[in-house]
Design a binder for these strands. Structure first.
Lengths: 181, 181
DNA sequence: CCCGGACATGTCCATGTTGACATGTCGTCG
DNA sequence: CGACGACATGTCAACATGGACATGTCCGGG
């Protein structure tokens, strides 16, 4: 049921077409939070329209339909954001792999953790300059660029995983290539 | 397709029945990594058995079937663990909410972030003593208890989210209850 | 000895999701 | 002016999933 809320949330910062929303899911939201292809987005927008949560604000060239939130839609988004259920839905392949590291032979585990650490380090190198550039352009007092919080979240996530991988290597007792007694 | 790998990974540290595996999913793996109920687990075990990745090692009381990994199963688990696809499957309601914080009115966003920070702080309070107790019991040199790495991951995750929520409150300019000029 | 709760396995259906198929338009570059 | 790539929307079949339904067993306490 969360696809609907993802769409409501994306529409909250301005009207968009199904195509625009599809591209949004190609970005970090699809990478870290929730995946969706156009084949689910178009029918869901239609259902949301039926439910009165969005309206077709404008019909443009090539059949483009620009959707906008209604009051009901905004209300439903707010309700969902502020009302967290006890158990939320999670399905994350990456985290699953981390839970299962200990099912590997120590040698494989070491290689995997080293790979994770390297990958995180690379992503951090990649993300940090983007965030810093965004902050440099930003006038204090202005609203933050949409996605700035999400970007920071991603960065801190990578830092946490990086730290975890290094800690795990040490705890597995295979991280001392320089050799200790 | 990852349910299969979750089951293979759980079976890697010892034979278990469908019932045992169901209970494993009630724990932290189901909370942070991958959810599954018994209605999916039993059929999946049957299919895995057909595929030769597991075998019924023992049939006990009450129709209990204890499954064990085969060589093929272990091989498939290893393949999956070491071979990461470019795009992994993610669907996380909590992260989605974090991505959409900026779609709320500033006042709602503040309340939400404060709630997140408080929740994380509570979970950290809860988890840290468990980890410390486990470490105190642990003899250096022995293999780590299964799940120790996962627990550490959860702890660091909460710490990261906690830090992010506080940072976000500050960046939104609503975090100075003591008042600055 | 009987009852309740934990143990234990399964099926079924409505809904959610993925990937392939299908169709057509607009703008631009050669 | 023709081809190509990006824009744009949709459907459908196969598969995954979650929750309800269904069934039966073992064990300990009253």
């Amino acid at each position: 049921m969360s696809l609907r809320h993802a769409l409501l949330g994306l529409l909250a910062h301005g009207p968009a077409s199904g195509y625009d929303l599809t591209r949004a899911f190609d970005g970090s939201i699809g990478r870290y939070a929730w995946q969706a292809g156009h084949s689910r987005i178009y029918p869901e927008l239609a259902k949301m329209s039926e439910a009165g949560q969005v309206v077709v604000e404008e019909t443009g060239a090539r059949g483009r339909k620009t959707y906008a939130l209604t009051e009901a839609g905004r209300h439903e988004l707010r309700r969902w954001m502020l009302h967290w259920p006890e158990q939320t839905s999670v399905r994350d392949e990456t985290v699953l792999r981390m839970f299962l590291v200990q099912s590997l032979e120590p040698d494989d585990a070491r290689r995997l953790l080293e790979g994770i650490a390297a990958h995180c380090a690379a992503e951090i190198e990649n993300l940090r300059p983007i965030m810093e550039a965004e902050d440099a352009e930003h006038t204090p007092g202005d609203p933050l660029p949409f996605g700035r919080l999400a970007g920071e979240y991603g960065l801190r996530q990578y830092e946490a995983v990086h730290g975890w991988a290094l800690w795990s290597l040490e705890r597995l007792g295979v991280a001392a290539p320089a050799g200790r007694p």
